[in-house]
Amino acid sequence: MSKRWLVMTEAEALSFAGDHRQILSVDDVTYVVGATAMIIIIDGSDPRQASVVQNFDRLVLREPFPEPAHQRLVSALQIIGFARVDGGYALMGELRKISSRSRALEVGNKPYPHNIRPTLVSVELAFAERLPFDLLDQVRPTRQEPLPSLDWLHTLARDPITALADFVADWYADVPPVADKATSDHALPDPLLAFYRVAAGRSEVLGQFNRIYPADELDPDPRGLVLFGSENQGGFYMLIDPGEADPTVHYDGLEAEREREPLSSFLLQFLLCETGFSSPFTGYAVVTPQQAEHFVEPLQPVPLRPMRWTGDPTRHYVAPGLVVTTTTRDDTIEVYVGARHRCALRTLRYPGFRWDQFDG
């Protein structure tokens, strides 16, 4: 489209839909269904649970969907994105559907009847071309918010469990803690019991990518070890000797047999990995070792020995409100970043750096 990135009048924007237009407004989205194309117009805002420009190559729409818009979203007809901005309508370009999620009608906890179409819950669309950051900032402004601090880092060397508790309290400050005493049929080492106290009421701490099992789900294996967690698809399991005060973390199903750090420090490393993989706002890139070295230079390294998973070595770096994980894959480095506030990622807009996925 030759007019890409221009800010247009309403009449100019609507003309892209062609004749016989239906204009359907729902919450912060307007669907314009015409003979030529369907136009999607979003407000320039950034609520987490509303339809939004997620990043430079994704637009996420959420229910409700008017029936004519629903029909177009499941068809192969052209879809064009606009955003309301100061001065008019910014053209974001053509979109293609890449995924959707639906919810079946349920009666008595069972989908019923089978001939009724499920309710469309969300649709993810990709831009034909990535939005440049200056346009992205127009169509998806980023709120400045107070960021979690790095105070926990100063405690880590002498008391990793206190450091973990301080990290969780600050990072998940928006999730109220719950007083809870973990119960198990097995004697457990103090670091794991402390981890359960920290995680009480905050299920994310137990992991969304990989998982630490709740205390009442722990089982011993034939060697007398306790299986306390696993990879998200069951590719490997994590075990400890419950008789040790701060045990070594063993792997079952992974080439690496054990981790370098004991359980007390490993639990923090586990959580730092989870923030990079599963936070509300993330980024991912594959870079050379030289690019990785330049990337992490402004960040604070976490002073623990590298993990052996996901690749050896796997290291962590932090900044206020930001966790970065780097992992070695043959001759390349995978970079994962995570934040609970989008504004924390803005510092990572390095000139010339090529992100595969980036929410900042």
Rank of each mutant, 00 (worst) to 15 (best):
2 S>M: 13
3 K>Q: 12
5 W>L: 13
7 V>F: 01
10 E>W: 02
13 A>T: 05
18 G>I: 03
21 R>V: 12
22 Q>E: 15
24 L>K: 05
26 V>W: 00
27 D>W: 14
28 D>Y: 05
34 G>F: 03
35 A>M: 08
36 T>S: 14
40 I>L: 11
41 I>D: 01
44 G>T: 07
54 Q>F: 05
58 R>I: 05
62 R>G: 03
64 P>S: 06
67 E>C: 00
72 R>W: 13
76 A>P: 01
77 L>N: 14
77 L>W: 01
78 Q>H: 12
79 I>E: 06
80 I>H: 04
84 R>W: 01
84 R>D: 01
85 V>M: 06
94 E>K: 10
95 L>I: 06
96 R>A: 14
100 S>L: 13
100 S>P: 01
101 R>K: 13
103 R>S: 11
103 R>A: 13
104 A>T: 05
114 H>L: 12
115 N>V: 08
121 V>L: 09
123 V>S: 00
127 F>P: 03
128 A>Q: 15
129 E>F: 09
130 R>D: 02
131 L>A: 02
132 P>V: 04
135 L>C: 00
135 L>I: 15
137 D>F: 12
139 V>N: 01
141 P>W: 08
143 R>L: 11
147 L>A: 10
148 P>S: 11
148 P>M: 06
149 S>R: 11
150 L>R: 09
153 L>C: 07
154 H>K: 14
154 H>V: 11
156 L>A: 12
159 D>I: 00
162 T>L: 15
164 L>S: 03
164 L>W: 06
165 A>E: 15
166 D>Q: 15
166 D>A: 14
170 D>T: 06
172 Y>E: 13
174 D>I: 00
178 V>W: 09
179 A>N: 06
184 S>L: 08
188 L>P: 06
190 D>W: 05
192 L>R: 08
193 L>W: 07
199 A>C: 11
201 G>L: 12
208 Q>K: 12
210 N>F: 03
223 R>F: 11
225 L>N: 12
226 V>G: 02
227 L>G: 02
232 N>Y: 14
237 Y>P: 00
238 M>G: 00
239 L>K: 09
240 I>L: 14
244 E>F: 03
247 P>K: 04
248 T>G: 01
254 L>Y: 13
257 E>G: 13
258 R>T: 09
261 E>D: 13
261 E>Q: 14
264 S>R: 04
268 L>N: 07
270 F>D: 07
271 L>P: 12
271 L>G: 08
271 L>S: 10
282 T>L: 14
283 G>S: 07
287 V>T: 09
288 T>H: 02
292 A>H: 11
297 E>H: 09
302 V>A: 10
303 P>M: 09
311 G>M: 04
313 P>K: 10
314 T>W: 05
317 Y>L: 07
319 A>D: 15
321 G>N: 03
322 L>R: 08
322 L>M: 06
324 V>S: 07
324 V>M: 05
326 T>A: 03
329 R>D: 14
331 D>Q: 13
333 I>T: 11
335 V>R: 10
342 R>F: 06
343 C>Q: 07
347 T>I: 11
348 L>S: 01
348 L>N: 03
351 P>S: 05
355 W>F: 08
